[in-house]
């Protein structure tokens, strides 16, 4: 049981700064997901917490204790690696029991804990096998079981599902969520997959260019992105953006007037999610370029006032490419961004 506090942490490599002054608190038993594209610094941050790399500046606390100078083994953490890092020369049993053995635990206790962890991950029938005899999904289970068997204060996971195929990933996602909820361990989970982040996290920290852009619950990250970047990054297809000009106390985007925030700017950005649009007589109109049926919905790509614009509409609406359609944004879902700072405007 432990809270993680990250205060003003910076990581510089020879010629570039991977992390800029990160502040983040992960509550006890919280499941936090670090989400971002590759190179955003999410794995670096995880490795700093693990003690595999060292922060250039700032402080990292686990359970109220400064751990900056501690090696990984003294931090009460366990980690699941992207490529599982299952030791090839040991059996599954010895892999799971590796950490316990390093703690010099008596062997009957080790056997009991290994069995328990293996049962949790449904691999109790594989205990005598070697990593070479396991499938990718099974190796993944071993890696998680090995981390859980340590009963760590903090569980760190680095893209644990990214090497699995799509179907297995979905299965493991749900299973992992269940297991981790039960274990009540503080967890930091790194991924670039927003569906994973959305479905598993208590809280998502979106990272970009070495900064944490927004740390909030999945739904508020989705509904109320703190910046234009988050809006464009989260959601598939991403948010639509249109420039809006000030006119008579309103903001006009693509010739349509909307109520918006009162800021001292001539131009701001209007944003709406593709699924928050309804066909209507008045609203944003544009020429349809491509229609992609997706089953329950259809993805319509169109041209609105010279800007690329996407809408997710009911699939039974008869829309053909080349037509001009008009869509009304749901008023409570419209968001506004400052074009200079890219931050959300209220």
């Amino acid at each position: 049981m432990a809270e993680i506090k990250i205060k003003g942490v910076e990581k510089r490599f020879a010629s570039f700064t991977a992390l800029h002054s990160i502040d983040l608190t992960v509550k006890d038993q919280e499941f936090l997901v670090l989400l971002g594209a590759s190179g955003c610094g999410k794995t670096t941050l995880l490795r700093l917490i693990a003690g595999l790399d060292f922060a250039t500046e700032g402080e990292i606390q686990i359970g109220g204790k400064r751990v900056n100078e501690l090696p990984p083994r003294s931090r009460e953490i366990a980690m699941v690696f992207q490529n599982y890092a299952v030791f090839p020369h040991l059996t599954v049993f010895d892999n799971i029991g590796f950490g316990l053995r390093m703690k010099k635990m008596p062997s009957d206790q080790i056997r009991q804990k290994v069995t328990k962890a293996a049962e949790m991950m449904h691999i109790e029938q594989l205990l005598e096998r070697y990593s070479g005899q396991l499938s990718g999904g099974q190796r993944q289970r071993v890696a998680v079981a090995r981390a859980l068997a340590m009963e760590p204060e903090v569980l760190l996971m680095d893209e644990p599902l990214s090497n699995l195929d799509a179907l297995l990933r979905m299965e493991m996602r749900a299973e992992l969520k269940g297991v981790l909820q039960e274990s009540k361990t503080t967890t930091i989970y790194v991924t670039h997959d927003q569906v994973e982040a959305m479905s598993m996290a208590d809280r998502i920290a979106v990272m970009h260019g070495g900064h944490i852009i927004q740390a909030a619950s999945p739904i508020s990250v989705y509904r109320d992105p703190a910046s234009r970047f988050v809006g464009g990054f989260i959601g598939n297809p991403p948010m639509n953006f249109l420039p809006a000009k000030r006119s008579n106390g309103h903001w006009t985007a693509a010739g349509v007037a909307f109520d918006g925030p009162s800021v001292d700017k001539e131009t701001i950005e209007f944003a709406i999610r593709p699924e928050d649009l309804d066909p209507s007589d008045t609203g944003l109109s544009g020429r349809v370029r491509v229609v992609e049926p997706l089953g329950a919905h259809q993805l319509v790509t169109m041209d609105v006032d010279g800007h690329l614009f996407r809408a997710v509409l009911e699939s039974d609406l008869p829309i053909g490419s080349g037509e001009t359609i008009t869509l009304a944004p749901k008023p409570d879902r419209i968001r506004w961004f400052d074009p200079d700072s890219e931050n959300a405007l209220q």
Binding site: A50, P71, R73, I77, M79, A85, F87, F98, G99, M150
Partner: peptide, 27 residues
């Protein structure tokens, strides 16, 4: 030998030397 294996050993209670002896050397 993937560096990850050594790192995994460190998170499981090894120091640099024991990780080398228990993980890298046998491999």
């Amino acid at each position: 030998i993937p560096y990850e294996l050594e790192e995994a050993a460190w998170t499981l209670g090894c120091n640099r030397f024991t990780a080398f002896v228990k993980v890298v050397l046998p491999l």
